[in-house]
């Protein structure tokens, strides 16, 4: 009796251990998705600050284009969302208009607008995340800093995009004010950067596709795409972002991202 019992026990124990080990190795798709998002975030942590010039090319459904130019400064805030200051240069009638945003991991962002003709700083509502940023195909939420906490995730599969081996991850916005029900992101397996993003609207239909290209590496670590192409499948409009003159390590402080600097920035 005794040996037999212990045999059964041993068998059961082995099965239990194997099951446990199996469970540890094979994450759920949700865990895998979150892990990828965290790794992306980790690899982009520690850049400190950056500034860049941005040209925004807007194309309407008739193929007519118009252009906007702006400068963008970013301050990384550890443990919180980043602070961003955008200063418009063209078109000329909006020159000097500036936009200050404090992104938060949880809850609404804080946003101010500076109108140079009146010299007025105005706190603006930040719940229009899904609204277009200066008439472009980019919504505010597409341009604000991508914090892990803003989505829940689900790993789907691996896929090769433009010769690059990618993870395909679905993510679902946490904020009910988001204009999207889900996004599908293609992540370069090697560099952990986004190559492509599909946006699905509130009705679940494919709305936009964003493609990143011409990635360059800065400070031997951080990747930034020089080109971002957003196409709206429902309206036929498109917006291309052309980034240039990236500079890291500017030594920016919180003081460079306050309402005073919003007024003085050029």
């Amino acid at each position: 009796m005794k040996p037999r019992t212990s045999k059964v026990l041993a068998f059961q124990l082995a099965a239990l251990l194997a099951g446990l080990a199996n469970g540890l190795n094979a994450q759920s798709p949700e865990e895998r998705g979150l892990e990828i998002a965290k790794e992306m975030d980790l690899r982009d942590t520690g850049f400190g600050d950056s500034k860049a010039e941005l040209e925004m090319q807007l194309t309407n459904r008739h193929g007519e284009t118009s252009s906007r130019q702006m400068g963008m400064r970013t301050l990384e805030v550890v443990g919180e969302g980043d602070k961003t200051l955008i200063i418009f240069d063209q078109p000329r009638d909006v020159k000097g208009t500036a936009f200050l945003s404090y992104t938060h991991k949880v809850g609404p962002d804080d946003q101010w607008l500076y109108l140079p003709a009146l010299k007025r700083v105005k706190r603006i509502a930040s719940n229009n995340k899904s609204g277009p940023f200066v008439g472009s195909e980019f919504a505010y939420e597409d341009l604000s800093s991508q914090e892990v906490e803003k989505y829940t995730y689900k790993y789907i599969k691996d896929e090769v995009v433009d010769g690059i081996d990618c993870f395909v991850v679905e993510r679902y916005p946490v904020d009910p004010k988001s204009g999207y029900t889900r996004q599908i992101v293609w992540v370069d397996k090697e560099r952990y950067i986004s190559m492509k993003l599909d946006f699905y609207d509130r009705k679940g239909a494919l709305l936009k596709t964003l493609k990143f290209s011409d990635y360059k590496q800065y400070l031997g670590k951080y990747w930034r795409a020089d080109q971002m192409n957003m196409v709206n499948h429902q309206t036929g409009k498109a917006t291309r972002l052309l980034w240039r003159d990236y500079v890291f390590g500017n030594g920016y402080k919180a003081r460079d991202f306050d309402q005073r600097s919003l007024q003085n920035a050029r």
Partner: peptide, 9 residues
């Protein structure tokens, strides 16, 4: 004084 909450100012 301004209170900014949701879509309300």
């Amino acid at each position: 004084l301004q209170l900014t909450r949701g879509g309300w100012l």
